[in-house]
């Protein structure tokens, strides 16, 4: 039962509601870093990693620090002093963005210390991810869809994979496009958007998948 729901979440995160082509999130790196296949791959890996970790961390913080329940840690610590568990849901946006910014910094430092090879591959892309709306987007989506911990992490990782898939497809096409003979006004960003539109049309086909 569990496995089946995880599979459904994965397929829908990668194909049916792909972050870039269906939800239109994370466009800045999608247009900005898709000129070369190598950098697209680096950016994609960094995004998968950060989205997975961010999903896990924000879920735990939301569940155990912000949601008013008997397990709320603030309530457990201050039990003698306050009657009801505190309701901190309204702080969600503020807390999540700060957590993600801190997390990206932390991940960057850890990678720098532990594996210089990976740091060289991901290094320049990591700071850019803080302002990638896909990371905050997936954290909020996890909360809004009432996912449990494992579902949240899987949704985060798979959404990252969906983003990477779109980014890699795009960069593959754009590398070929460098040589194409285009009207001058269309060069650069406009043709990239046309490509994105065509890819979004193609991905629309996946929405016909009916999952029982």
């Amino acid at each position: 039962m569990e496995i089946q729901s995880l599979l459904i979440i994965s397929i829908s995160a990668v194909f049916i509601s792909n972050f870039v082509l269906s939800r239109i999130l994370g466009l800045c790196p999608f247009i900005g870093v898709s000129k070369q296949l190598d950098s697209a791959l680096g950016m994609g890996l960094a995004v998968i990693f950060v989205m997975g970790v961010a999903s896990a961390v924000t879920w735990v913080i939301y569940r155990y620090l912000m949601l008013p329940s008997e397990q709320n840690l603030i309530y457990l610590i201050l039990k003698g002093h306050i009657q009801n568990p505190p309701n901190l849901i309204y702080l969600r946006t503020l807390v999540f963005i700060l957590v993600i910014a801190a997390l990206v910094q932390f991940v960057e430092m850890v990678i720098q210390k532990t594996s210089p090879g990976l740091y060289r591959a991901l290094g320049i892309y990591l700071p850019l991810i803080t302002t990638n709306c896909a990371v905050l987007g997936v954290s909020i989506l996890n909360i809004d869809s009432d996912y449990n911990f494992i579902e949240s992490v899987v949704n985060g990782l798979m959404s990252g994979i969906g983003f990477t898939l779109a980014l890699i497809l795009m960069s593959g096409i754009r590398e070929k496009l460098e040589l194409a003979n285009l009207p001058k006004a269309m060069r650069g960003t406009p043709i990239a958007f046309i490509l994105a539109g065509l890819m979004a049309l193609a991905f629309l086909g996946f929405s016909g998948l009916s999952i029982p």
Binding site: M186, T189, F193, I194, G197, A200
Partner: peptide, 13 residues
């Protein structure tokens, strides 16, 4: 979504 991409592409072009 693809309509959005096409529209902005043509406006920028």
């Amino acid at each position: 979504p693809s309509g959005a991409f096409f529209t902005i592409a043509f406006i920028i072009a």
